[in-house]
Structure formats: structure tokens, C-alpha cells
Amino acid sequence: MAFLDPARTASVDVIVPCYRYGHFLEECVGSILAQAGVATRAIVIDDASPDGSAEVGAELARRHAAVTFVRHATNKGAIATYNEGIEWAEADYLLLLSADDALVPDTLRFSTQLMDRRPEVGFSFGNCLSLFEDGSLKLVRPLGGGAPSGPQVFGGETFIRRCGATNIVPTPTAVVRTTLQKRLGGYLPELPHSGDMEMWFRLAVHGSVGFTDETQGVYRRHDRNMSQGYDTAGGLPDLQQRKLAIDLFVERQADALANPEGWRAHLYRDLARVAVTRASSVFNTGDLSASWALSSFAATLDPRLRTSLPWLKLGAKRLAGPRGWRLLQGALSSARGKPSARGKAAAGTHPA
């Protein structure tokens, strides 16, 4: 393990892509400039926003020497904007931070100190706060509440296995070693929704992954999040983008993977489990077409799933039919001494 030079101040370029988020921009940039223990620069790239983003960005650059502002004459899209920011980056480390998100005060030093001490770490991440429109906050712990406390470093394969077919890295917390990012290239235009997942896998193949166990970022959830359109049809478009991310990762990193097709099968298997779980969930809501589409998608990924307990449970639901399944649930709840959904409603409470 290398020892940290106490006189060293790590530098971080924070890339801030902005499209119609001018009303969030000052808070976002302010959270970057407020970071202690690191030298930060905010690179704000406005993708031809029709709102006041350009005026806010230009004013921030006028007031702060550590803010660089760029405006596109025409809209280039999110992926091209991200990659332009990566090209601009010159610091030791970089972070991609959407203009509607923010950093928790004094947290970049946790990532940079971990990565300074462990030069084999290609990127690191931490916990995150989800900020909802009503002002409420929810702590997101990517490794789960039962994980050991304190900083950790994972080998790349261990990290990918832990993720499976799910992106566990909160993007506002992901600090990347700039030299590695530039060597491996930017985000893939084929993946407007799942580019993050492919990127973390790609970086993990070429370095270890650090986890700070600190709350580092704030992810704002609102009705204009870019991911909203992928929640339709029970989330099938989201899962299809994840499959494409897996395929592109395996195909383009084949030379760096010991068993590329083994990795594809492993990740497909996990994605199939997610799909059949969603198929069962949307069946409960009465969306039978979405349920069939999700289960068909799962079966194409991993035909062996047809003998699993979740698949057999879904089959039992379909045999009973939506009404029969609801009646059976009510009978089971009564047998366990729990009020059914109808009983809860009658009692003036809301069903879970």
C-alpha cells in the first residue's frame, strides 16, 4: 500500500452536464466549490437549454475562477455532452455530476484519499441521499445495511459479481481516475439509459474498485429525470437497455476477460431473475401483457429459469387468474391472522 503524502492536495474536475436545469445549477456548482481538502474545478456544459441555464452558467463562471462554462449552439444529447466533459478533464480525478444533483459538503476528499493510497483503484463510490420533491431524504447504501462498515477495496471481478445485472453505483458519488478514464474512452452512444452500468464494469476490468462508506452525493428525484421513460411496461425498456449494456461490455472487453461468454451467461442469469420478479409484481397490478412480456424476456435470457421457484410461483398465479389469486391471498392472510387488503380498507387503513 502506498502512503499518502500529507502535503499533497488532489485535484478533481467535476463535469456538470446541464439541459433545462438552470434552476438547480447554482446549488450544484456551489456544492462543488464548497469541497474541502481537494482542488476542484467545475466544468459546466449547457446542451443548448431553452431555459435560463446559459445565463446562470455564464454568471457562475464570471464570479468564480474555478468554474468553466461551455454552451452548445445546438443540442448534442447527454452522451456526447458527457464525453466532451471527459475530454476537457485534466485533474487527477473526475466526477460526472448532473446539474440537478449535488455533493455533500467535504466528501470528495474521502474518495481522493482512498485512491491516492491505493493506486490500483480505478474508481470509487459511496453512499448517496435521494432527495424527493417534497423535500424528504432517503439514504441509499449501495452495499446494503449488512455490509461491513468503513472503506473497502474490491477486485474488479468481485465488484462485477456483486453488482450482477444491477447498477449499484450512485453516479453523483463515482470518482474516476482521469488517466484510466481517458485510456478506456467515454460513454457509449448506444446506451442512453444504461451507460453508467457498462462504464463501471469496463473500469472494473482494468482496476480495483473503492468504496468509501461515506455519504457523498445527493440524487434529486423528480418528474423530469432522464430515466422516467424507461419505467413503462413494467420496466421492460430498462431491462432491455441493461441487456445491451451486458452485450457491449462482454464483446468490447473480451480481450480483458478470462471467460467472456461465462460472464455473459452469469449476468444474463441475474437479469432474468430480475425480469421474472418484475413479471410477478406487475401481474399483481393486473398488467397481464407486461407480465407476459417480462417473463418471455426472462426465458430468452436463461431458459433454466423455468424450473426456478419464482417462475413456478408466477405460473401458479396465472393458473389462478388475477381474481383467483387475490382471493387466495386474502384467504392466506386470514389464515395467518392478518387482515386482507379489503379488510384493511374497511378498517380505514391503506393496503401495503
Rank of each mutant, 00 (worst) to 15 (best):
226 M>R: 13
333 S>W: 10
114 L>H: 08
77 G>A: 05
250 V>P: 04
129 L>S: 15
49 S>R: 01
178 T>F: 05
184 L>P: 06
280 S>P: 12
11 S>C: 01
351 P>E: 14
202 R>F: 13
263 W>I: 06
100 D>L: 06
173 T>E: 12
137 L>I: 14
237 P>N: 00
274 V>R: 12
19 Y>G: 03
338 K>W: 11
30 G>D: 11
160 I>D: 02
189 P>L: 07
133 E>M: 10
55 E>K: 15
234 G>R: 07
97 L>D: 03
232 T>L: 07
64 H>Q: 05
306 R>W: 02
19 Y>F: 14
176 V>I: 09
286 G>N: 09
18 C>A: 10
86 I>N: 14
15 I>E: 04
217 G>H: 02
320 A>H: 13
221 R>T: 15
51 D>M: 11
124 S>P: 04
256 A>N: 00
249 F>L: 13
187 Y>D: 01
92 D>G: 13
56 V>Y: 14
300 T>A: 11
327 L>C: 09
167 N>H: 11
259 N>T: 15
168 I>E: 06
349 T>W: 05
282 V>M: 03
78 A>G: 04
266 H>K: 02
138 K>N: 15
19 Y>I: 07
114 L>K: 07
86 I>T: 11
352 A>D: 13
269 R>L: 13
148 P>N: 02
133 E>S: 04
168 I>T: 07
337 G>V: 01
208 S>Q: 14
235 G>W: 03
291 S>Y: 03
5 D>W: 10
144 G>V: 00
142 P>W: 11
321 G>Y: 13
228 Q>D: 15
268 Y>Q: 07
281 S>K: 10
276 V>I: 04
18 C>S: 12
180 L>K: 08
9 T>Y: 03
276 V>E: 01
313 K>C: 11
11 S>V: 02
260 P>Q: 05
192 P>S: 04
130 S>L: 14
271 L>G: 11
249 F>G: 06
206 H>V: 10
295 S>H: 03
202 R>P: 05
132 F>H: 12
38 V>A: 01
209 V>T: 01
265 A>M: 13
343 G>D: 02
42 A>H: 02
22 G>S: 07
262 G>Y: 00
258 A>R: 10
18 C>I: 04
63 R>V: 12
143 L>E: 00
159 F>H: 01
159 F>N: 12
50 P>I: 04
202 R>V: 08
232 T>V: 07
30 G>L: 08
290 A>I: 00
139 L>N: 04
267 L>C: 04
225 N>E: 10
210 G>I: 00
222 H>C: 04
282 V>I: 05
173 T>S: 15
242 R>W: 11
230 Y>W: 09
218 V>D: 08
290 A>Q: 01
157 E>L: 09
298 A>R: 01
12 V>N: 09
5 D>Y: 10
165 A>T: 07
303 P>H: 09
249 F>D: 14
239 L>H: 00
247 D>L: 12
350 H>F: 02
149 S>W: 06
164 G>R: 09
331 A>F: 14
